[in-house]
Design a protein around this nucleic acid. Structure first.
Lengths: 198, 198
DNA sequence: CATAAGTGAGTGAATATTCACACTACAAAG
DNA sequence: CTTTGTAGTGTGAATATTCACTCACTTATG
């Protein structure tokens, strides 16, 4: 707990374990006891690495926000078509969650939102970031005549984001039993079919 | 607490109060203390009407499942077009939630799902019911050549349901500040624009 | 040998639930 | 009409459990 911004190896372990518990047992299941037990050490040891339980959640979500922003921004290339950019962003998302299923909490974080003001703020930022990114691609697609101009970008966003979130919820409810990168890409193709200019 | 199936006035009051707390403060805020306080009586009095806290949640969701099924089924009329049926179902939904915002929990129930096996089961049934209803309308629309046949009904469902859920989430996050029946119908028009045959 | 990392025991607050008791309405019995 | 039994509804106090968190302490290591 030396530096506030840098995350130590142990902190990262705790964050990952917390995400895992969160996805498996929900907020109610995430206690100092369950985290400690999963880490194979005592409850008090947690406080060597985090000031409070809330800080773990904040770190988890902040880390994700950072990762996701960096990762998704890198997918968008002006020289590529909007369709390609659209696909690249979602493919990256699905691949990421396929490899880090316990971080799906960040998408399905409705439950977390009532935890604290700070947590709510980060979650809203996370959503906002994704909205901005997506809006950019949609605008590009409209200008390049790839996407329909019948529906405003603002109105298109909730359709796309909602579909994505629902897909993730389905995956979680299935117990992560199928390959989300395959199923996810199918849905993306369908979404594209709908929003592409006929 | 005489009959298990019939809901007494007091039980209904407790259910409504619980929904209100749930929406305002989340699962964590729903305690015997807060329910009792909102009901203006003691914690122990709750147990005159419900065996346990879980039973309140179960009753809340069961009631909703019942209401929603009856209400939505009544909206579908074979003599109407699929487009009309589609609109009728969602208009009914938005109107219902406009008047009963504290029942939005049932739509955004990701957090509730980890509470218990029984609660999870009811929520899944709720979703399943809506999926079936919607699938019926979509099939009708395909046969009558109103809706696109490019995308299978199965693949269309998550897009529509996801959009609906996201809209409800946005509404909740805004603190129910705008008129969901107006905003909701707008989104429905857009969805129809997308899935209608060109 | 100083600092980071871990431990077991303990703490107070919160939580769901129980229990003995009190009040009320009302129907049956006298 | 009055008495009385009973079912329903409420209460405050007490309960065990769980929770996040603290503290004095050991241990290990660079």
């Amino acid at each position: 707990m030396t530096n506030t911004n840098e995350i130590s190896i142990r902190q990262l372990e705790i964050i990952e374990v917390s995400g895992k518990i969160l996805i498996e047992k929900g907020i109610k299941g995430l206690t100092t006891k369950t985290v400690a037990s999963e880490m194979n050490f005592s409850e008090s040891a947690i406080y060597r690495h985090f000031k409070s339980k809330e800080e773990i959640l904040v770190a988890l979500l902040s880390l994700l926000k950072q990762n996701m922003n960096k990762r998704l921004t890198a997918q968008i290339k002006p020289q590529n078509s909007a369709t390609e950019n659209f696909k690249a962003v979602f493919t990256s998302q699905f691949n990421y969650f396929k490899n880090n299923p316990h971080f799906v909490v960040a998408v399905l974080s409705d439950g977390l939102i009532d935890e604290s003001k700070e947590i709510k703020a980060i979650i809203l930022q996370l959503m906002q970031n994704k909205i901005q990114l997506l809006a950019q691609i949609l605008e590009q697609g409209k200008q390049s005549n790839e996407f329909t101009t019948e529906i405003s970008t603002e109105d298109l966003l909730p359709i796309i984001l909602g579909t994505f979130r629902f897909q993730m919820l389905k995956w979680k409810l299935s117990g992560f039993q199928y390959d989300i990168s395959i199923e996810g890409n199918k849905i993306i193709e369908n979404l594209l079919l709908l929003i592409q200019k006929k």
